[in-house]
């Protein structure tokens, strides 16, 4: 999807603003939104591909007005509704109850060590047991296809149509373009492709500098 999220190389966003002594979360609700999103992914049954795809569907102007965790929450809400777990009406009704001071509590207890153990394995999207042929190898010259799908994809706009070199084959990973659409994992090889800065940016690129992008098999053709 050629959305506002795909901002590598764009002009006009201004200076990088750094915050002195930045807190981990800027409000309590950000901390809750963080933990809630991780838990809900397991509970509802979605992965980052879905979270990202739903963030990307947020209209551009709203996307730019929203903070990081606001984007997460908008995405979580739309996934929960899409999966039939929540309805917009019950969310709005609960907000109305809460703003009048209502409160619900619940849940089991879980120690910090137990949680530490629970997340230690992570949730890799690598599929080492799936055997898929690799169409490319390190050293191959490749061109990124000039595709502009309407759905979620991870081929950044700035590298499409550009010529690069494969510098690593990371093995077989879930393919986000189909997985984000609930069309199956369809795992395939994922490669790191290195592009010369001048190939990407013309005269604005510094000779000798480079940018690497991690790209799935389907995004590439022999260069």
């Amino acid at each position: 999807m050629d959305g506002i999220h795909d901002m590598g190389g764009m002009h006009g966003f201004g200076k990088i603003e750094r915050e002195e002594n930045e807190p981990l979360f800027h409000a309590d609700w950000e901390a809750r939104a963080f933990g809630l999103s991780l838990q809900a992914a397991d509970g509802i049954g979605f992965v980052d591909d879905h979270l990202r795809a739903n963030i990307e569907r947020i209209p551009a102007a709203k996307y730019l007005r929203s903070s990081y965790y606001e984007l997460w929450m908008q995405s979580l809400e739309s996934i929960a509704i899409e999966k039939g777990v929540l309805t917009q009406q019950e969310i709005e009704a609960r907000i109305a109850t809460l703003s009048e001071g209502g409160r619900a509590e619940g849940g089991s207890d879980l120690s910090l060590d137990e949680m530490d153990e629970a997340i230690a394995g992570g949730a890799s999207t690598k599929r080492p047991d799936v055997v898929v042929a690799a169409g490319f190898k390190s050293g191959d010259k490749v061109r990124v296809k000039n595709d502009h799908p309407r759905h979620h994809t991870r081929a950044t706009r700035y590298c499409r149509g550009r010529l690069g070199e494969v510098i690593a084959d990371h093995g077989v990973f879930v393919f986000p373009d189909s997985n984000s659409e609930w069309q199956g994992e369809n795992p395939e090889h994922c490669y790191t492709v290195m592009f010369a800065a001048e190939e990407l940016w013309g005269e604005a690129g510094t000779q000798g500098d480079s940018v690497t992008v991690d790209l799935w098999e389907s995004y590439l053709e022999h260069g």
Binding site: G35, Q39, I44, A80, D109, S111
Partner: peptide
């Protein structure tokens, strides 16, 4: 609101969220 609703449906655990944070 979303945390409460998901918790009531057994899809998230508020103390688990506490521990994650």
């Amino acid at each position: 609101a979303i945390e409460q609703l998901l918790s009531e449906k057994g899809l998230v655990d508020p103390t688990g969220i506490d521990r994650l944070i």
